[in-house]
Simulated assay, not measured.
Amino acid sequence: MRLFCFPFAGGGVSTYISWADSFPDDIELVIIQPPGRGSRLAEDPHDNMTSLIDELMRHADFITQQPYLLFGHSLGSRVAYELCYRLKQNEMPLPQYFIASGSRAPHVSKDKEMIHNLPKNEFIQALEKLNGTPKELLENRELMDLFMSLLRADFKIAETYLAQKCKMPFSILVLHGQDDIDIEEHQLSAWGELSDLGHHLVQLPGDHFFINQSRNEVIHQVSQRVGTALAASYSTL
């Protein structure tokens, strides 16, 4: 079984790479690395959901060739959902389980001010308030110039994409930071409108980036769902 992990806006493989030792040998961790970061730094980032999903769909046969789960944090949750939507349209196998972390439901509009098109200094200040971009990066003018296009592109997707509401044939686990004031209760509960099998909400200590602050608790929640999916998979053999 494979566990695919999708990064938040501006994020990459570094968030998940340390997770590899937390799962049994029969789980393969696959970390999505969109262009514009890490080993793909020289490539232009996607600034719209359609082109990002088009790229992922070129790997659809690999993604769906064996049982799998999807995990995404913040923007990553919505990217993962849109991938499911496209796979469903193409009548391809869907995940055994879906884990949405730190995100409003993708078909619910953002009710906060958009920041992706703010002037540079205001954009940097807005990133600082979100508490997810390393302070060392925010204070380094040269690095910020290097990553500015990536950050703006990711936040443009995060702030402008709105999904088609579609019921999926899998359960959804929703993880939420107890101190995350940017996501309203109705935006979280709306995930339940996207599953025929229901959803379950778990609150964890931390703000929007509780994925780092409560790393062990997040991994524990994911591991439980992986175990459930594995057991179900083995029972059908």
Rank of each mutant, 00 (worst) to 15 (best):
R2N: 13
L3M: 04
F4K: 03
C5Q: 09
F8V: 05
G10A: 13
S14F: 03
S14D: 11
Y16N: 06
W19H: 09
A20S: 10
F23W: 03
F23N: 02
I27D: 06
E28N: 04
L29Y: 05
I31C: 15
I31K: 15
I32N: 00
P35H: 12
G36H: 13
G36Y: 08
S39D: 15
R40Q: 08
L41A: 10
E43D: 15
D44E: 13
P45S: 12
H46R: 07
N48V: 05
I53V: 15
I53C: 08
D54W: 03
E55M: 15
H59K: 12
A60M: 02
F62C: 05
Q65D: 15
Q66T: 06
L70G: 02
F71Q: 05
F71W: 03
G72N: 02
H73D: 07
S74M: 05
G76S: 01
S77Y: 14
A80T: 10
C84L: 10
Y85N: 11
L87T: 03
K88D: 12
N90E: 13
N90Y: 04
E91W: 03
M92E: 07
M92P: 07
P93D: 11
L94F: 10
I99G: 06
A100P: 02
A100H: 06
S101Y: 13
S103H: 04
R104E: 05
H107T: 00
S109E: 09
K112V: 11
K112H: 01
E113D: 13
M114K: 06
H116T: 05
P119A: 11
K120R: 14
N121M: 12
E122P: 00
E122W: 00
F123N: 03
F123L: 04
L127H: 03
N131H: 14
K135M: 12
E136M: 09
E136F: 13
L137S: 09
L138E: 08
L138M: 07
N140E: 12
R141F: 08
L143F: 15
L143I: 12
F147T: 08
L151Y: 08
R152V: 07
R152A: 06
D154Q: 09
K156S: 04
I157W: 05
E159C: 06
T160G: 03
Y161W: 04
L162V: 09
K165G: 07
C166E: 13
M168Q: 12
L173W: 05
V174A: 12
V174Y: 01
L175P: 01
I181L: 13
I181V: 12
D182P: 00
D182R: 05
I183N: 10
I183E: 11
I183P: 04
L188N: 05
S189A: 11
W191S: 09
G192R: 10
G192W: 05
E193Y: 00
E193D: 15
L194T: 11
S195D: 05
S195C: 08
L197I: 03
H199T: 08
H200V: 02
H200E: 14
L201T: 07
L201H: 07
V202Y: 09
V202A: 03
G206V: 04
H208L: 00
F210W: 01
F210A: 06
F210I: 06
I211R: 00
N212W: 10
Q213F: 00
E217A: 11
V218K: 04
I219F: 01
H220Y: 02
Q221D: 01
Q221L: 10
V222Q: 00
S223F: 14
Q224F: 00
R225Q: 14
G227R: 10
Y234D: 11
Y234F: 08
L237Y: 00
L237W: 00
